[in-house]
Design a protein around this nucleic acid. Sequence first.
DNA 1: TAACAAAATGCAATCGTTTGCAATTTAATT
DNA 2: AATTAAATTGCAAACGATTGCATTTTGTTA
Lengths: 339, 339
Amino acid sequence: MPLKAESKLTLAKLAELAGVSTSTASRALKDNPLIKEETRTRIQALAREHNFSVNAAASRLRTQKTHVIAVILNLIDHTEQSVSDPFLLKIVAELNKALNAAGYEMLLSNSFMASDDWASYFVSSQRADGIIVVGQGKSTEKIDKAAAARVPIVVWGEPHTKADYPIIGGDNYAGGYMATKHLIESGSKRILFLGDPGHAEMEQRHKGYEDAHRDAGLTVSADYTKPIDITSTAAYECINDAIKQQGLYFDGLICVSDMVAFGAIKALKERYVGIPGDVRIIGYDDIMLAELMHPALTTVHQNVTMAAQLMVEQLLCQVNQQPVSSQVVETHLVKRLSS
Amino acid sequence: MPLKAESKLTLAKLAELAGVSTSTASRALKDNPLIKEETRTRIQALAREHNFSVNAAASRLRTQKTHVIAVILNLIDHTEQSVSDPFLLKIVAELNKALNAAGYEMLLSNSFMASDDWASYFVSSQRADGIIVVGQGKSTEKIDKAAAARVPIVVWGEPHTKADYPIIGGDNYAGGYMATKHLIESGSKRILFLGDPGHAEMEQRHKGYEDAHRDAGLTVSADYTKPIDITSTAAYECINDAIKQQGLYFDGLICVSDMVAFGAIKALKERYVGIPGDVRIIGYDDIMLAELMHPALTTVHQNVTMAAQLMVEQLLCQVNQQPVSSQVVETHLVKRLSS
DNA sequence: TAACAAAATGCAATCGTTTGCAATTTAATT
DNA sequence: AATTAAATTGCAAACGATTGCATTTTGTTA
């Protein structure tokens, strides 16, 4: 209650203090050369002294720009999947950096919040200037809907998907192919695919998995594909069940994420299955822990830093009415000891 | 360019469509009982049909409330520390959930952005209604400054710190004590502390580490404390150097985070040091990967979900001018195979 | 020193909602 | 039917910054 003497400092009051009009003050603060240099620095100093900062709500209302981008973690509703997947969170961290570098702030949401209509909830409502979606999910319905509203939007996913919005992602087909080829060349003959080809990204990796077999003159049975959730627990249970029911009938694992690989590894270790002796394993994402694992995990690395930059770039292109396109980021196999 | 017929849908236009005044429309949309029920539902339906959503900028300007909370990852400037630490990101994820549940959105920042004056940058500027700081860092200068501006603020850190803002955190002293006691009882006699007591949280853990020694009738040399950065690489290098220079002179490790523990484990494994045979290890945080590690990592668990809820609760108390206080969240040791 | 161009500043409308208060309609009471 | 109370609705003034255009000040040139 007390000492609230000087109510709130507005531009108008600052201007009064400086003995100029609000227009001048406003311009001075954003270094508009229309204002005499001396006046500019004087007002800026005054602003700093009173640590004044422009009211964002008012500014956004007037300029129709928020300088905020909404980032949506597009998770599957019923699973705890990725909320805790270090890879997704790494993307978020990189996006944050890239956005800041471009002078934008990040509003973080998950797909539960914000009802269904992303375009109107985030953009029409002036909460943000655009949307970055992390993950295509199994259905792109909401994404398509938002894009149809002609709102700036970019997606992390499978970049070869046909869509009228830019998709940034690694080369999933190549990733799946490289990994599988490597396993085959290392001697594996019965390789399981742990992941759900229902996701566009996984579908491509799976195709790579199949083609690598074909090119090596091998055939692969359909039930070697295990369409599980992208979690370590799902993988753990899957491998447990598989062995319980059919014994150790496989000698290689292609996993759609490192977390999945970790779950599988845990199940195998508990049964004293040797890695890579009995079963060779490859993960995907190259999260920091992959190399700390024992044995260090062979995995597919995607340049996430680059990806984040590209996503921001493509998004801002849209904000500025410029043409955009999907982009493939560099992807390669990191060979470690698990394969 | 084309089909942009219906410019932007504003409340005024919606009202016109419905044949009422904007006041009525505004009230109807927020279910104000002043408006006849029939009218209310009619307007709400209309709004949904045209997927109208209120302009947040205008609304915030008028009401002086944003329904946004800024979350600041308070990282040490020069290290890459925690940006990729799964524990911090887990806190962020939980905060996001808790905030959403309370009807708030989350603006995510790191300490690089947003200059130095958090209070004025985030709150006075109407970018957010309050601030949640994750991590006290080694200096609380910026936090204190923000708090001095009498802005709603909550911190994740050491809850027993004297401060005029609420601090939520685990019982660090107890955590350090429990962990150390357990190692001693398991037979370790020369235990290193991996972490920098310069942080308030680590200081308490370190005190617990010392007291546990004292209570067991042991003394511990000051150079058994290794004030390293909270990263796996720092830990890796630290352990490597230690062994290189003095051999394996220790038989226990108390680490201030699981990531630190992982780095240490890597270094030990490379030298074929047995865990827990030769060296027993305890981490802190109980991140998901702790139990997937080999050997599964003994670690100190803090109830993060609860913590996030408390933080949001304490923050909103401030927003509503209610009294607040620091809170300690439940903390316990999870014994696994590394100790 | 008058005349004019250039530089610097100020006026006032605008962005889209919200809300106290006044005005209108409907229902209740005598 | 007249009066009064209650239930609905509308008017209009904020909220605080930005910006096209008009106005003033300063500098230049003849």
